[in-house]
């Protein structure tokens, strides 16, 4: 394979990696603040895409046509809000499991994931659906000698913007400081007068909304199927394990690395590229010490 032939795969890998990073960031926010592994994260990723479909349906966008920019923007705003609402509902249920072995929370979110997936299947059917982005980001663009998907560039750029916005939120705002503090020491945060249950619900909503947005952005690349969730939550867990829980740039860099790996594998063995994530997960957990960036957490029990 020449380098030229490899480049599109690497670019694909990069764009997937950035989107994985987005999902992982939402995932690690939740793990950091609540020490809960949200297995429903993947189903919420899927729900984002499906709610966007619903918005399209409401706005009468045909499934085989292209939405206008404002229709797309509407979906991009409304659907994640719906996802956040469902996410916050899950958090409400999770409350009973706080303080118990984290496995209870895991089981609960696992159940939520399956219920969500089934609900999606009931409402929208088991077959693959199409979710399109506006026409002006579809099609090809010339990059030197190769033609590359315009959409993937758009998706990558969008992910980068969102990641940076998230960074600003976490590092530069009071809310971000509260989130970081809450992740580090929930008792002290309460003793400073901060309402921890509200904070947790907000973080869950924010984290799941990110997954929902990622689902919408990924949809034109991956397609929309009820069980697309697993292929999102496992990379998220993998990335957070490699990058370290609670590490912002750890998640971003690991996300990109995992994406590039998938891209490379797909260059040589396309069918098995998604499988590479699962194999990578097995290898990483098998050899795992403390991740590259982060510190130990309650998950190590």
């Amino acid at each position: 394979m020449t380098f030229e032939e490899l480049v599109p795969h690497l670019l694909n890998g990069l764009s997937i990696g950035l989107l994985f990073a987005l999902i992982a960031l939402g995932f690690t926010l939740i793990v950091g603040v609540m020490e809960v592994i949200n297995l429903a994260h993947g189903s919420l990723f899927a729900l984002g895409a499906y709610l966007a479909l619903a918005v399209y349906g409401y706005l009468e966008v045909s499934e085989f046509g292209f939405p206008t920019r404002s229709q797309y923007a509407t979906a991009l705003i409304v659907a994640p809000l719906g996802v956040a609402a469902v996410g916050m509902g899950i958090e409400l249920g999770l409350r009973r499991t706080y303080g118990k072995d984290p496995l209870y929370g895991l089981l609960f979110t696992f159940g939520a994931a399956l219920v969500l997936e089934e609900a999606i299947r009931q409402r929208w059917g088991p077959t693959e659906r199409l979710l399109r982005a506006p026409a002006d980001v579809s099609g090809f663009i010339e990059l030197g000698d190769i033609f590359y998907f315009k959409y993937r560039i758009f998706a990558s750029a969008f992910a980068v913007v969102l990641i940076l916005l998230l960074w600003v939120l976490i590092e530069k705002t009071q809310l971000g400081a509260i989130i970081k503090a809450g992740a580090h020491d929930s008792e002290m945060v309460r003793a400073l007068g901060i309402n921890l249950p509200v904070l947790r619900m907000f973080v869950f909503g924010l984290g799941t909304a990110l997954a929902g947005i990622a689902g919408i952005i990924m949809a034109p690349i991956w397609g929309v199927r009820p069980h697309m969730g697993v292929d999102a939550v496992i990379p998220a867990f993998l990335i957070v394990t490699i990058g370290g829980i609670g590490s912002f740039w750890g998640s971003v860099i690991s996300g990109i690395m995992v994406g590039l790996t998938v891209g490379m594998v797909s260059a040589y063995a396309t069918e098995w590229s998604i499988l590479s994530i699962y194999i990578l997960l097995i290898v990483v957990i098998f050899f795992r010490q403390r991740g590259l960036f982060g510190k130990a957490s309650g998950l190590d029990k």
Partner: peptide, 27 residues
């Protein structure tokens, strides 16, 4: 690969193995 892990890491590995086997069966 899994028996020296427990809890959440064990659980996630079982998911990964399950997916690998399922994938192989399909492909």
């Amino acid at each position: 690969f899994m028996s020296h892990r427990r809890g959440i890491y064990f659980a996630l590995m079982t998911i990964a193995f399950g997916q690998v086997f399922w994938f192989v069966a399909i492909k």
